[in-house]
Amino acid sequence: MSDKPRLHSAGPTHLDRARDLRPLIEREAAEAEALGRLTDPVVEALHEAGLFGIWLPAPLGGAELSPAELLAVFEELSYADASTGWVVMATTLENGTGGAYLGDEAVEHIFRGPRTPLFAGQGTRPGTAVREDGGFRLSGRWSFASAMPHAQYVHSLGVVEGTGEERIFITPVEAAEPLGNWDVLGLRATGSIDYAIDDVFVPESRTHLFSQDEPLRGGAIYRLGLLDQALICHSAWALGVGRRLLDELGRHVTARAGRPGQLAASEAFHTGFARAEAAHRAAHALVRQTWDDVEATLDAGGTLSTRQETMVRLALNHATSTLTEVAGFVYASGGTGALRDGLIQRLFRDAHAGAQHITSGPQVLRECGRELAGLAQGEEWAVFALEP
């Protein structure tokens, strides 16, 4: 048995709390979409339920859920509302990894308050950092900072000039200039605005390597590194939204059963619904099976093999592509009820907005196929590509 920290588990409490919040989240969803951010009652309820602390290391007072527990909570919240699930998964990933990887001085300042701080930002397209005594000066422009209207801190990827080193930089939200261009097809309530930072000093303790996979605090989940942990988020989100789409279509059709010409009497619809249900359940099973395998490896003190790294990417890609197929079937089957403003229309838009995320891109699927076919011997995953 390895002496490395094992997975931490907090049990079903936070999943139960997420379920309890579903009526409130559903009632507030339309207003949140109109506002372009979650409503204050929902944000407050999420705080009170401790759901913004589910990824935070236990030594900092967080719940530090296991991957399976996180999957269940994010799936539940995304079922209630796609934007709410997205906001919670984004900010908890960022405050959780910050708590695990940032220096002591930063952690003592950022996490000292009675309430879990919320992070927003972007960790793919980088800004530029110039090393200076005690830290760095960061500049750049980033897109899609989910949860920015609710955040106290901003999480940004930057490349250090002269070394090419990629680091995550944590700055107060006041140091970022919102660019006010949030006009999108779906996930409107996530407030995922673009932002700019201009020559802001960031102490070294408020940074960490993008590739860091050895935590300074907390257990085995943080040995996945930032990117692999992000795959938990998007996999659960796709599963939750897909399940809600199918359930809403079932309710829509049942409510109209018995009327002449309705889908309830269509054999073609019955067949299509069965296929959509099977596809969703298969995607769900693959995600769960893949992460069960990951958990066993982490809990034993191991690190993921290249094949396991492939599978967590493939499971996400498959869940996302299945979601868009399900969304298309539900929208086409919903008729004018889906065309008009309402839940099915919003879910359709949200599904296609979320599917645009880089973690589910076509390059990743191609690389998965290459590795699974045995054509990437001796190569390892470097974010979204296999390299020697």
Rank of each mutant, 00 (worst) to 15 (best):
K4C: 01
P5S: 07
R6Y: 00
T13K: 03
H14T: 00
L15E: 14
L15G: 04
D16G: 04
D16C: 05
P23H: 09
I25T: 09
I25M: 10
R27W: 00
A32W: 02
A34S: 10
G36M: 10
G36Y: 11
L38W: 04
L38I: 06
V42R: 10
V43M: 10
A45K: 07
L46I: 12
H47M: 04
A49S: 13
G50M: 07
F52T: 02
I54H: 00
P59K: 09
P59C: 08
G61Q: 02
G62W: 05
A63R: 08
L65K: 03
A68D: 07
A72P: 01
F74P: 00
L77E: 05
A80T: 12
S83Y: 05
G85T: 06
T92V: 09
T92A: 03
E94N: 12
G99K: 00
H109W: 07
T116F: 10
R125V: 12
P126Y: 06
T128Y: 07
D133A: 12
R137H: 03
G140R: 09
R141P: 00
R141G: 13
S143N: 07
A147Q: 08
A147P: 00
H150I: 02
A151T: 06
L157N: 08
G158T: 15
E166Y: 07
I168S: 01
F169Y: 15
I170A: 12
V173M: 11
A175T: 10
A175L: 05
E177I: 13
P178D: 13
W182R: 11
W182V: 05
L185E: 12
G191N: 02
G191W: 08
Y195E: 02
A196K: 13
I197W: 01
D199L: 03
P203E: 12
F210N: 02
A220F: 08
R223L: 01
L226W: 11
L226Q: 13
Q229C: 02
S235R: 06
S235A: 14
A236I: 06
W237Q: 15
A238G: 12
L239C: 12
V241F: 04
G242V: 04
D247C: 02
E248A: 13
E248Y: 01
G250A: 12
V253T: 08
T254P: 00
R256Q: 15
P260Y: 02
Q262G: 09
L263E: 11
S266I: 00
S266T: 01
H270P: 00
F273D: 08
A278G: 11
A278P: 00
H280F: 15
A285H: 08
V287W: 03
R288N: 09
R288L: 14
V294Y: 04
A296Q: 14
D299C: 08
T303R: 15
S305Y: 04
L316T: 09
H318D: 07
A319Y: 01
A332F: 01
G334W: 07
G337V: 01
L339N: 00
R340V: 15
G342Y: 11
R346A: 15
L347P: 08
R349T: 08
D350H: 07
H357M: 07
I358Y: 13
S360H: 06
V364H: 05
V364W: 02
C368A: 13
G369F: 15
R370M: 09
E371R: 11
A373C: 05
G374Y: 09
G374R: 04
G378L: 11
F384N: 15
A385P: 00
L386I: 05
E387A: 10
P388F: 03
P388E: 11
